[in-house]
Design a protein around this nucleic acid. Structure first.
Length: 789
DNA sequence: CTTACCCCGGTTTTT
DNA sequence: CCGGGGTAAG
């Protein structure tokens, strides 16, 4: 394709003036004599994985066995031997974070050579790169925009409306979910199995999918799924294009292969027809994303798919101590569908995994909080402690407890930076400024802040736009010339259109950060939040400033927007020493000295829905999640379950997770909960216990401690009419002061709290304040957590 | 157009 | 029990 040659910077045409030099330099630097330095210190399996360069290779890398090291060293090895030049290696990851890390580590090994690795990135970023090159062949222009989930939903709502489909009965979200599912499986509208198309809007599923695709093309836009699918179509329909990539990619590496979906698999297969030097690294035991399209089968089938494939197992674990690994291995051995490998500890047995029960989730949080304080006083860093939960609602209880204790924590997950409403609004403004034809962005902000442009005005604009086949902003301008608009919307719309003209005119004239500030200011957007009195407003303004700051490293507005459409996470700066609270899913790939695993109860973990929807496969995926959780711990893994938990506002009694039974007794200590506020004393206030009748936990354990723990579980949920809210806690008495500062807020002072917003101090007790929050009610907080409002 | 209620749903999440 | 989204009234 000639467009390969249009771009001077196109690596496919680069003569690679420095290529020889790179290889030579790398070899010189890395190979003083004999085996090169970078191979030193690899164990035999790792070394085999690095040195097996030709032919398909599957590296089954157990948790903590040096997977990333193998990947990066392998790249170094290929380059050092001069087998390929940096831009002839395709290496794909799932997340930007993983891509960044790999680039950094290759950089450390080889210096600036890593810069030349233009094909190191996520499936989506590489897909974008390919698609931009050949956009015309896919019916797009190379400046296509990438829609995120929000835009996608908005567009689908429009499609549903245009097709007169009741979006009550058939929510756009559901259609989006279906389409994503089809795209994950690389199905075009015509390929959608009739049975599945049937499931939406009386059989119109595939039809709506087709209309949606047509709309995307009109808007010159793609969604995330298209970033994989379009290249696949391109490769299939244009063998000459595929051929060029075959010539290009001498080596291919794939990280987290167990997470690939059908589309990614097909994408890889097409590319792998060129060279069979495909190395996939993954761990079937850590496949936890089946629910979003990942096919464990891909990794299980590897040897069949790629005949002659070599399989290397990395089983030496350098992360965790013996008991932890034994426990994890024993647990995961209960799964049927796995390739099978056993983690082998490289160090001492260390501490046993502990299992402890609590009366309810509140007590669980208190106990864990106490334990963390104990660890802290023994000199453990909070950064090295994590609480890994199955579902995010579990986090709240820990947060509240930690606030009371004054224990610094950070929550990973939640709404991410670029998903916050204010950020998305701001970006929508910038998108319209950069490309006035971006209808979805325009639609998002044309009445944000409220400027009196409602549905009526929008409807008029849309009508004109559709009739004339022009973008919304253009249509708005045309309406201004005509007689149809009412005076008020006309004036407002005129001003808005003029503003956009002005801003667009400034794009190449003033620095983009400055332009962004100006847009946010002049549009009244900043003002909107300044005037807002809600608890979050202050934080939102901070976020907007942060957004502008994050634009600085980019050359221009366009470059920034391209970046953020694919990189939806922002690098948050380093922060103080704090306990990490996150979901098990978010914890994959991370490690901590001490890991708390609360909520191991039937129904929550394994999650009922997983069981209901996916049966045995669901259970096995839950079990893999448990395995991921346990293997995050370097030295201490502490599992908890609670006998009572409030779900949807109702107290439910629960039985311990079957996964507890699957932990090997020899590696586990059952901890008897110390007497607490929940256990005995309050018994009187509870009615007859449903728990008494509940199926007893059939344990394979038979230690005195375990039996006592079983017996101690006592009565369970309060009967109807019983006092709600669980056992009384005497917060003040439980508090072990971990912060001794006294910022000295007087009673009556107005204060601001990150989580609870503004409030008035009603009582002061040392460094602990009782604050009447405007929104959140009365809370007892440590003064270092609030600042003067 | 904005505000006040009502109803539904509530696992995990990247790009 | 809580929040989002959508509807109905001001």
């Amino acid at each position: 394709m000639s467009d390969f040659h249009d771009r001077p910077s196109d690596d496919l045409t680069l003569p690679a003036p420095r290529a020889g030099g790179i290889a030579a330099r790398a070899s010189a630097a890395l190979r003083p004599a004999g085996a090169p330095d970078y191979l030193q210190g690899l164990n035999p399996e790792q070394r085999e994985a690095v040195e097996t360069l030709d032919g398909p290779l599957l590296v089954l890398a157990g948790a903590g066995t040096g997977k990333t090291r193998v990947l990066t060293t392998r790249i170094a090895h290929i380059l050092a031997l001069g087998k390929a030049r940096p831009f002839e290696i395709l290496s794909v990851t799932f997340t930007n974070k993983a891509a960044r890390e790999m680039r950094e580590r290759v950089g450390k090994l080889l210096g600036e050579v890593a810069e030349g690795m233009q094909w190191l990135g996520t499936f989506h970023s590489i897909g974008t790169r390919i698609l931009r090159r050949h956009a015309e062949l896919a019916g797009l222009s190379s400046s296509f925009t990438i829609l995120d989930t929000d835009d996608q939903i908005r567009l689908l709502k429009q499609v549903l409306a245009a097709e007169n489909i009741d979006d009550k009965r058939w929510p756009a979200r559901q259609l989006a979910f279906a389409i994503d599912g089809w795209k994950n499986r690389a199905l075009s509208p015509k390929d959608v199995p009739a049975g599945e198309a049937q499931s939406f809007a009386a059989g119109r599923g595939a039809e709506l999918y087709a209309i949606y695709q047509a709309r995307l093309k009109q808007l010159n836009a793609v969604d995330f799924g298209d970033l994989l699918l379009e290249p696949i179509r391109l490769f299939r329909d244009h063998p000459d294009v595929l051929e060029q990539y075959h010539r290009r990619f001498k080596y291919m590496l794939v990280d987290e292969y167990q997470d690939t979906n059908v589309a990614q698999y097909l994408w890889l297969r097409l590319l792998a027809k060129g060279s069979t030097n495909l190395a996939c690294v993954g761990d079937d035991d850590q496949s936890i994303y089946g629910w979003r399209g990942a096919e464990v089968e891909n990794i299980l089938r590897f040897e069949k798919d790629f005949p002659g494939a070599k399989v290397v197992r990395l089983e030496r674990n350098y992360r965790s101590t013996g008991h932890i690994l034994n426990a994890a291995s024993h647990l995961i051995a209960h799964n049927q569908g796995r390739l099978g490998k056993t983690l082998r500890p490289q160090t001492e047995l260390g501490e046993k995994v502990t299992v402890a029960g609590a009366w309810d989730s509140g007590e669980e949080a208190r106990q864990i909080g106490d334990e963390i304080e104990a660890l802290q006083s023994k000199g453990h860093k909070l950064d090295e402690i994590a609480i890994l939960v199955r579902a995010s609602f579990q986090m709240r209880e820990f947060e509240e407890r930690f606030i009371t204790l004054g224990l610094p924590y950070r929550v990973i997950g939640g709404p991410r930076f670029y998903e916050r409403a204010e950020i998305r609004d701001a970006l929508a403004y910038l998108r319209v400024v950069a490309s006035p034809a971006d209808d979805l962005a325009f639609e998002r902000i044309y009445n944000t802040p409220k400027r009196g442009l409602g549905d009526a005005a929008l409807k008029q604009i849309v009508e004109v736009a559709r009739a004339e086949e022009i973008p919304l902003l253009e249509a708005a301008r045309r309406l201004l010339d005509g007689p149809d608009l009412k005076p008020k919307p006309r004036a407002t719309l005129k001003e808005l259109a003029q503003s956009f003209d002005r801003w667009s005119g400034l794009v190449d004239k003033i620095p983009h950060t400055e332009l962004a500030e100006q847009v946010l200011e002049e549009s009244g957007y900043t003002d909107m939040w300044t005037k807002d009195r809600s608890a979050e407003a202050q934080g939102r303004l901070e976020n907007l400033k942060e957004l502008v700051r994050s634009m600085e490293p980019f050359e221009n507005l366009r470059g920034f927007l391209e970046h953020i459409s694919l990189v939806m996470d922002a690098d948050r700066g380093p922060s103080e020493d704090a306990v990490t609270i996150m979901t098990l899913h978010a914890a994959k790939g991370l490690e901590f000295d001490t890991v708390f695993l609360p909520g191991w109860e039937e129904g929550l973990f394994p999650h009922q829905r997983s069981l209901d929807e996916s049966g045995r496969a669901g259970l096995e995926e839950e079990r893999r999640l448990a395995y991921v959780g346990v293997t995050r711990a370097r030295r201490r893994a502490k599992v908890w379950f609670a006998s009572n938990r409030r779900i949807h506002g109702m107290w439910q009694s629960s039985i311990p997770s079957r996964f507890l039974d699957e932990l090997p007794e020899a590696d586990v200590d059952v901890i008897e909960a110390p007497a607490t506020f929940g256990g005995g004393g309050m018994g009187g206030s509870y009615g007859a216990s449903r728990f008494d009748r509940a199926e007893p936990f059939k344990s394979t354990y038979d230690t005195p401690g375990w039996r006592r723990a079983q017996e101690n579980r006592g009565p369970a949920s309060p009967g109807p009419g019983a006092r709600r809210g669980g056992p009384v806690t005497i917060e003040g008495e439980l508090v072990a002061s971990s912060t001794a500062t006294s910022a000295g807020f007087p009673t009556g002072a107005r204060v601001f709290h990150q989580k609870f917003g503004n409030g008035t101090v009603v009582e002061v007790d040392g460094n602990k304040l009782t604050v009447a929050f405007d929104k959140a009610g009365h809370k007892r907080v440590v003064d270092s957590f609030v600042k003067a409002a």
